[in-house]
Amino acid sequence: MKNRLLWPVLALVALLVLNVVVTPSFFSLRLQDGHLYGSVIDILRNGAPTLLIALGMTLVIATRGIDLSVGAVAAIAGAVTCTYIASGGDPWIGMGIALLLCAVLGLWNGFLVSVLGIQPIIATLVLMTAGRGIAMLITEGQIITVDSPTYREVGAGFLVLPIAILISLAVLGLVALVTRRTALGLLIESVGVNPSASRLAGVKSRTIIWTVYVFAAVCAGIAGLMISSNVSAADANSAGLWIEMDAILAVVIGGTSLAGGRYSLTGTLLGALIIQTLTTTVYTVGIAPEITLVFKAIVVIAVCLMQAPIRIRVRQGVPA
């Protein structure tokens, strides 16, 4: 496991060093009105939604699944909350309703995958496309702006550190605790590695699969709240657009295989940080906007190559 995390760590360190070289003040932090500011904090705050979604994605991928609908679900969460607040509702209740709806959407994904046995990539593609439509219906095609100080706290607020960071880290801690202290982690991995053997051993694979999709959707919902709260508006079209790709990348860079099985939450954290740092680096280093995506792709490929199975096999040797 340590070996698997070596390359992501090195990649992150390399990116950070590059940033320091270009901007010597990169690591400097300052405290102003009890709020911590600085480039590193910005990276963490902007990366919070990706990290959250990637955490949900990690568990889904560990069961051999994938959830493409998280971006759309995030948009729905923002749309519901903003519409509710705009019509004079309480922000807390609005967020509650939004997350509840996300859980229902997760149930839907889980139903398609575990009960009907549809391939996850197709099953969640349904909601990926339909979800934006649902969000549009809720906002009636408008960008809904709200003026609620309470709601703004979620994405833009500070408790010394940005609240978004604290939420994401709290969820990370919670998932780590729940999956490793209970047997959930073992059962998820077991279902991911060998579904038939797990079924014959009496594992309730259906419940496990259902659980991870609901969890992924709720994570996406919270991320959606952050994104929308940060700008105090709900944009059904572009909120959380392509975030599922960043999340999947974060999981893969973190060393969890798309084939399911063993997963690493620490790896996912690293993966999310690498992706966000990369986005920031592109701006600080001054790479021309036209080629940002190409630059991103090159770094991602480099990291993935470093941990490709063929290298690992050469390094460790495979016993018979």
Partner: peptide, 27 residues
């Protein structure tokens, strides 16, 4: 295909059926 969970450890494989019977909440 239907027996061992190849990527997991001996320990995890050994307790899998017992764990499945207990449910995930009671490791």
């Amino acid at each position: 295909a239907e027996g061992v969970v190849a990527d997991l450890t001996v320990r995890d494989n050994l307790i899998l059926a017992m764990q499945a019977a207990r449910g995930w909440a009671r490791p």
